[in-house]
Amino acid sequence: MNGLLITSIEEKLPIEIMYISGKGDISHRTIIVKEIQDEYIKAFCLLKQQPRVFNKSNILSAAKPKLRKQFKYA
């Protein structure tokens, strides 16, 4: 997972995470990582359209975004 976080910083590319909050709520977020610390990461959340701080131990999974096919309609 750390490699993916570093790639997001270096290439300014979004990644998708599954995150569990301190209250136990699970959410799917697309983020661009700005900074990595020992316990947390600072990122721009595309869902909320604002900077957020995520506890690293609460990130359940991280992945590159799935490519979506775009179709043209006549």
Rank of each mutant, 00 (worst) to 15 (best):
V33R: 01
K56D: 00
Y73S: 11
F71H: 09
R52V: 01
S8A: 12
L60W: 08
E39S: 13
I59A: 04
I32E: 09
I32G: 08
F44T: 03
S61R: 12
Y73G: 08
S21I: 00
D38H: 09
R68M: 11
I31K: 03
K42Q: 11
L67C: 00
E39F: 06
H28V: 10
Q50E: 14
L13P: 04
A62F: 03
K48I: 03
M1Y: 04
K34S: 07
L60K: 13
K48V: 04
C45L: 04
K72V: 07
S8E: 12
G24F: 07
F54P: 03
I15K: 00
E35I: 01
A74G: 12
L13I: 15
L5N: 00
N55K: 09
L4G: 08
K56V: 03
L46V: 07
E10T: 14
V53L: 10
T30S: 14
A62M: 10
P65T: 04
L67M: 05
K66Y: 00
M1W: 00
R29N: 08
I36E: 10
Q70F: 07
V33Q: 03
K12N: 14
A43R: 01
S21R: 02
E11C: 10
G22E: 07
I41V: 15
N2K: 13
R68S: 12
K64V: 01
S8L: 12
L4E: 10
K56N: 05
C45T: 04
F54S: 06
L46S: 05
P65E: 00
G3W: 02
K69V: 07
I36S: 09
A63M: 10
I17D: 00
K64C: 02
T7I: 10
R29Q: 01
G24Q: 08
L5R: 04
K66A: 02
S27I: 10
L13Y: 08
H28Q: 11
E11H: 11
L46P: 05
R68Y: 07
I31Y: 02
L13M: 12
Q70S: 13
L5W: 02
E39H: 13
A43H: 01
K23T: 15
D38P: 06
D38M: 10
T7Y: 11
